[in-house]
Structures are given as C-alpha cells and as structure tokens.
Simulated assay, not measured.
Amino acid sequence: MLTAAQILAFLATAIVLTATPGPDNLMVLSMGMSRGRRAGIAFGLGCALGCLSHTLLAVIGVSALVAASPLAFTLLKVAGGVYLVWMGVQAWRHAGAVRVGGEAGDATPLRQLFLKGLVANAINPKVVLFFLSFLPQFVVASQGQMEWQLGLLGLLFTAQAVVLFGLLGYFSGSVGAWLNRRPNAGLWLDRLAGTVFIGLGVRMMTSR
C-alpha cells in the first residue's frame, strides 16, 4: 500500500517535526521533570495516541472532498500549503523562545495523566489543521486507495510519536536540563522544522 520511499520520507519528516520543541513535547518534558518518569511517559503516550482521532478526521475529510469535487481538493491543498508556510515562518520568528519548566506537580494518578494528554491532543484544532495539511503531502495518487494511504500514514505518525514521547518522558530530566543549558539547540531545531514546513507548504501549493 505504501512504498518504502514513501515510508522513509514520511518518517524522516515526522520525526523532525515531532522532536522540535512545541506545546506537546514541552509538556511531556515538564511533567517528567516535576512528577517523574512514569508521569511523563503516561502523559506523552496520551498525547501521541490522540493523533488517532486526527487521522480519522483526515481520512474522512480528505476522502469526502476528493469524492465531491476535485476543485475542492485543490483548494484544500492550497489552503493547507499556506497554513504550513505560515507555521514555518512562525517557527523561524519564535525560534529558541521556549524553555522547559520543572515545577512541582500535583498527585494526579497516571491514568488521569494519560487521559489528560489524550484529550488535550484530540481537541486541539491546530493539530487537526496540521494533519489535514501534512498527511496528503505523502499520498501518491497513482497508487490509488487514498483512504488507506492516509490511514496508514496517520498510524505511522502516531507510532513514531509514541516512541519519541515515551523516550522524552523517560529521559525528561536529562533532556530538559540539556535543552535549558543549550538554548541554541532549540533554536536550530525550530529553524529546521520551520524550513521543513515552508518547503512542504510550497510543494503542496505548486504540485498537481
């Protein structure tokens, strides 16, 4: 269904974007630093699995547009490209502006932390827009079965997020301290992600 080239290109891009300091992974790091590894892992797994709801919405939404009107799908691609370029510009403008906190947290059970991460990601409209813009980039129309391609790409994104967020939770203390001591690391990660966003956006707007 997906070629090896599709999978490798998608995973490489997804890992860069997931690893870039942002609201989700910074919350995972902060949770792990303040509450310990198990809390960071629980919250991170919730955030990662929240991506499944966005995958479902992307599959349903994009597939419906393709079936209804090629013009509507083209407009979605253009709007998605503009959104990705905007995200890239914002990443460059605010590069290196984040720091990881380690304040003491409450005694929330791990199950509740997992659910908190799940809900926080699932109801985030920015993540919905990101999935609608990002996943179609790696669909190859000539291979057919767009719904399955989108679904598998979403599952791949979720799987790599589970691994990365789990590792972030486990090594949260070390990673958070390292990032705070080296602000340039976050700066260049932001710039790398911004460049990727802009490149994807331009590609989306200019591709047929």
Score class of each variant (00 low, 15 high):
I60R: 02
I60C: 03
G61L: 00
S63M: 11
S63I: 12
S63A: 15
A64I: 01
L65H: 01
L65M: 08
V66C: 02
V66Q: 03
A67H: 00
A67M: 00
A67I: 00
S69E: 07
P70E: 04
P70K: 03
L71P: 03
L71T: 09
T74Y: 04
T74M: 04
T74D: 06
L75I: 08
L76W: 01
L76T: 00
L76K: 00
A79L: 08
A79S: 09
A79P: 10
A79Y: 05
A79D: 10
G80I: 05
G80F: 03
G80S: 06
V82K: 02
Y83H: 06
Y83M: 14
L84A: 12
L84E: 11
V85H: 10
V85G: 12
W86R: 14
W86L: 14
W86I: 15
M87N: 14
M87P: 13
G88R: 01
G88T: 04
V89W: 11
Q90H: 15
R93K: 15
R93Y: 12
R93D: 14
H94W: 14
A95S: 12
A95C: 13
G96P: 14
G96W: 13
A97E: 12
A97H: 10
V98W: 02
R99H: 07
G101N: 07
G101A: 11
G102A: 10
E103R: 05
A104G: 10
A104L: 11
G105M: 08
G105F: 11
